[in-house]
Every structure is written in C-alpha cells, then in structure tokens.
Design a protein around this nucleic acid. Structure first.
Lengths: 229, 229
DNA sequence: AGGCTAGGTTAAGTTATGGTTAAGGCAGCT
DNA sequence: AGCTGCCTTAACCATAACTTAACCTAGCCT
C-alpha cells in the first residue's frame, strides 16, 4: 500500500555503480533517496536529511562503516533510524562489530535488489495485524466485516470489491455524517489520486444495487451519508 | 521492558563469538544471562540456573542440541522453560527433530539480534503455551491434518506438498479472514524469505486444483480467504 | 411551462488484477 | 548420473473492477 509520507533512505557507498543501482531500485519502490560516497559525508548528509533507513557500506576508504555508524548514532534525530550494513564477505568479525554498534541488519554483496527491498519493507511491517482499526461494524441490519470484506444482511453474505467496500465501510463508520464527493475521494482513494468526483456516484450506485437503497442517502448539493433512523 | 523479576536466559553455543554477541544483546535488554559452551555443560548449568529461556545451538561438537534438549526436559524445574534452537541452515530434519523434542521456536543463523529479542519477548506475550498449533482442523467437508499433511474430503484422502498444505492450513485456521499475498508470504514462507508475491497465486491454483474451487475465494485487490457460508 | 441544476443510470473504454500454463532450477532419491 | 516432484518465476490471457462520458430524470427557479 502506498504511504502518504515517503520513507527516506540514505545510501552510503564509495562505489558509484552500487549507489546508482540501489538508488534506482529504491526510487522505483517509492522511497526518497539521498546518497553519500564516504563516511564523513554520510554523517553530514544524514544530519540534514534525517533518513529513516541508512544503507551503509562497511568497507570504505577513509572512515569505515562501523565508525560512521557510531557517529550517526550520536545524532539524537537518528537514534531510531534503521541501519543496514552492506558487506563484501560474510566476515564474522564484521558481523559482531556491526551489531555492537547498533546495526539492525546486514546484507552481503553482491546485493540482490529484490531481497534488499523486501528487507527494508520488513523493517516497517507491523508486528501483528491485531492492532488494526475496528474490524466489524454493526449498523441497522448490516454487519460490515473488514476482515472478510463482506456485508452480512440478515443471513445473506455479500462480498464487495475493494472500492465499493471501503466506500460503504467509511460511510458506516461515520453514520449520519455527510461527506462531499471530494471528501470521500480524499479518504478512500487517497490524497494523491486524481479521479473525477462523479466516479463516486457510480460506486454509490453499485453499493446500493447490492445491499439495497435504504442505507446510503443523498444530500443534494452536499454529498452522501449513511442514514440511520 | 519493565520486569518485576528478571527473565533468565541460558545461551548454549560452541562459538564464543556467537555467545558473546547474544549475551551482550540480551543483557542490554535487561535479561539475566548464563552461558555454556557445549551440551554437557549446558545441562549442568541449566539445573542450577533454572533459566526461563534456553537458546540452544543444534550443531555442537560432542552432544548436539537435540539430545541436550531431551536431557534438559527431564529436569522437573525446566519443564516449562522455553527452548529456542539456533540452526545454521534451514535443514528440514533439524526442524522436525527440534519440535519433536519440545522446542518452542527456532532461529536460523546468521542471527539478527533485534529479531531474536522480539521473538523472546513474544514467547512471554503468549497467554499460555496451550495455544499450540491445532493438529486437526475440520471445516466444511474437509479435515485438514497437520501431522500427515493430508486433507480428508468426504472419504478421499489428498496429500499436499508442504507449501500448498501450509497455505491451506493457514487460511483454514483463520476462516473468512482475508490475507494479502504479502501477509501470506510472511506467515507461511517466513519473514526472511524473499519470493515474489505472485508465487502465492500459483500455490492457490494448485490447492484449488486438488481440493476443489469451493474453499478459497479471491477478494480482488485485497487477497485470499477461506470461505465459509 | 421552459430552462437550469444535481444526481441517477447506463454503457463503453481502460486498467489492474488474478488465472493459467509452462519452463527452469534445485533437492532428494534410486 | 538420471529421474522425480516441488518451488519459483515469467509470460500471456481473461475479465472484474474502475473510470469516464453521455444521456436521462426530477425538482426547483423565474
């Protein structure tokens, strides 16, 4: 799913090729990327850029990755950044030293972009699904279940496609409250999606078709609401 | 972590580096740590130290981890200790043997301290050890048997390969709940395996082919679920 | 009434998503 | 080695879902 707030990644490596490859792949996945070619510069860039993730080559001329990591950890804003070391070989000592200075993961070269992407994604993955928002809404004679994407209406189970479900779910979550088409687009489609407001009408139509006319009512000139009473 | 009573962890491994790194990280998290360098010593130390958690390397010179675990389980005070195996590779036999002797979890090297810590914490978060994996699930006209990796469907017995079985088993364990491909990968393949999300499709296909189309349904744009009703 | 507006409805166009098949790789087994 | 079965990937295809546009209807206004 697309986060509204871009995750920032800092890539530090003295080999321009590596930096390029990583940057390209990361940007393709929607991350915001900054780069640095050595440890000294990395610390400077990091303090301004405040990355969420730092990919740090261990072997670098001048100041190595371990030392750099130590310095970065001094910066208060970067205490909680994830640090992933990049190492040429699986050298035991590197591993030990790396974790000592507070690395969160390490990856051995050659780097497989997909594996790296997936590991970064894993860092931000939620622990469990349980802390999610409300799973079920019971309203009127409907039970709207987010877990299964279904509506239960007096025994009958109706499965709705994604957008239709989310539209109904959103309205049902705020009963009796009127939302304009634009507000619905914002909340369900997302802030960065650009579709015509009338699209909402069509989805409303489909939902009404499937669950009945007695739930979503139109407030002319304003928008739609889930109607109790 | 706020502990009334410090949790005691025993680390058993023949490689001093590993022992050190684990000890360091565990102490940093506030655990009380003891160590042993082989299976024989582990049993001795364990009986005095009465750890709550035992991290046990499987491959050790002399007496291996499985055997050691068996002996430790003999000690009455340690019946309820959690045992986590450390294994170099995901060797099938290790996994099976490990759970046979009553291990609670296992972790593959190289060890990521953060992951290990959160797994240890998870052990204590559980309500009770009782929520062990259900062996059999009866759902609709299927009996899904974890022990034999088979499905019984109205008299017919179908054997599924590992991944296919686990996919079905996982979905059946949480009926009506929709899981995205990523969630399925995470739960079945594991957090540290990197395969494409579409791989799930193929396995779904195979399962449907074998048990029929009436069990797993697709929720477009969301994922899959085991469908009752 | 006639014209205007807002929404309803339908259908056609477009895209995204999943289904399906097949090929290659790898591991275990004989 | 050669065979076999499982897993993963890639490619192609069908279609559901979504979007857009066009037309229709109802109500309100002067």
């Amino acid at each position: 799913m697309s986060d509204k707030q871009k995750i920032k990644v800092l890539v530090v490596d003295d080999e321009p090729d590596i930096v390029e490859i990583l940057k390209y792949n990361l940007q393709k996945e929607g991350y915001e990327v900054a780069t640095a070619e050595d440890g000294i510069k990395a610390v400077k860039v990091a303090s301004k850029f405040t990355p969420d993730v730092i990919l740090l080559d261990i072997m670098m001329p001048g100041q190595d990755g371990v030392e750099t990591c130590l310095q970065i950890r001094q910066i208060p804003e970067l205490k909680n950044a994830f640090v992933i070391f990049l190492t040429a070989r699986m050298e035991e000592y590197s591993e030990v030293a790396a974790f000592d200075v507070g690395a969160d993961d390490y990856i051995t070269k050659p780097i497989k972009p997909r594996a790296l992407m997936s590991r970064i994604a894993a860092l931000f993955r939620r622990e469990s699904k349980k802390e999610q928002e409300q799973i079920q809404i019971k309203i009127k004679d409907l039970t709207i279940d987010r877990g299964s994407y279904t509506i239960d209406k007096s025994g009958k189970t109706i499965t709705l496609p994604k957008k239709e479900f989310e539209l109904l779910y959103f309205l049902a979550k705020n009963p009796n409250m009127v939302f304009s088409r634009d507000e619905l687009l914002q909340n369900i489609w997302g802030a960065d999606v650009f579709v015509l407001a009338r699209t909402v009408d069509v989805h409303i139509r489909k939902v009404r078709e499937k669950i009945g006319e007695d739930y979503i009512t139109t407030v002319k000139g304003v928008g739609y609401k889930f109607d109790l009473g």
